[in-house]
């Protein structure tokens, strides 16, 4: 699991961790049931305090991305509908960004693009 901490970022370190683990799960790099490092090991590896990784894991648990079993460790949770939706939305956003980029290349305006989308949706 790759996590990069940006020390001079305004975003708190625990948030950087939660966001990066979330993205790995949503991108499918981390799959249901995968073991993630213990918060103490992660703290050591990232050279940050235990309470920071603890907070990150607590937030991830609350949001249903991971679960922990005492004495066994933390695992990627079964993904619920909301998460799958979020995952799909992310993919759609990426695809749309590509569409927009392609449209720009040939000078297609946003209005024309919307019309095209409407026509295709009605089919």
């Amino acid at each position: 699991m790759q996590i990069i901490i940006f020390n001079s970022s305004k975003e708190p370190i625990y948030e950087q961790i939660t966001n990066q683990i979330k993205s790995s799960i949503l991108a499918g790099e981390l799959k249901e049931g995968d073991v993630i490092p213990s918060m103490r090991k992660l703290a050591k590896d990232l050279h940050i305090s235990v309470i920071t990784t603890k907070r990150a894991y607590e937030e991830l648990e609350k949001a249903g991305f991971i679960y922990s079993i005492v004495g066994k460790g933390s695992f990627v949770a079964e993904q619920n509908l909301e998460m799958i939706r979020e995952k799909k939305l992310k993919v759609i956003e990426e695809q749309l960004s590509m569409v927009i980029a392609n449209s720009r290349e040939i000078g297609l305006s946003t209005e024309e693009l919307q019309q095209l989308l409407n026509i295709l949706s009605e089919e």
Binding site: S38, R40, A43, K44, H47, V50
Partner: peptide, 27 residues
């Protein structure tokens, strides 16, 4: 930090060099 991987251990230390704390202190 290696010492702290075992969750049963505790460290209490005084310091003037507060940047040391930014990295490892919880409280």
């Amino acid at each position: 930090q290696e010492f702290m991987v075992d969750g049963n251990r505790t460290i209490f230390f005084s310091t003037h060099i507060t940047t040391d704390l930014d990295r490892i202190a919880d409280y």
